[in-house]
């Protein structure tokens, strides 16, 4: 499977995923660190791919969604942006909402459930 196919599969099979340098526990770039911290602060599970551990993905990811830099955050299969956008959306509360809805699609109707 090509790197682009592997990226596509990872993006489509995880409601929230970050492609980053390092891991959320041991980030290796300040931008990746901040973006993964914002995701962690949303309090839901998310997937991650360490691009430094996979040279093919490192090389091909910028083409996937025509976005030139790392990290990249995808929610429900769509690129939401890099570090600056992720942080700004966290600060205004949009990120938490999007992440919660992506991870628990029924959450909005749960209030009426028995």
């Amino acid at each position: 499977m090509s790197a682009l196919d592997r990226i596509d599969q990872a993006v489509k099979s995880n409601p929230v995923i970050i492609f980053m340098k390092g891991t959320p526990q041991m980030p290796q770039c300040g931008f990746s660190s901040r973006a993964s911290q914002a995701l962690m602060a949303c309090g839901e599970e998310f997937a991650y791919v360490n691009v430094l551990g996979d040279p093919e993905i490192f090389q091909d990811l910028p083409q996937y969604a025509n976005w030139p830099t790392f990290p990249q955050v995808y929610i429900n299969g769509e690129l939401i942006g890099g570090c600056d956008i992720t942080l700004e959306m966290y600060q205004n509360g949009e990120l938490q909402k999007m992440v919660k809805e992506a991870v628990k699609p029924d959450a909005a109707t749960e209030g009426d459930a028995a």
Partner: peptide
Amino acid sequence: VAESPLCMGGGKA
């Protein structure tokens, strides 16, 4: 606007 993060040493590719 927000301050940029400091480096954490990974990858200069």
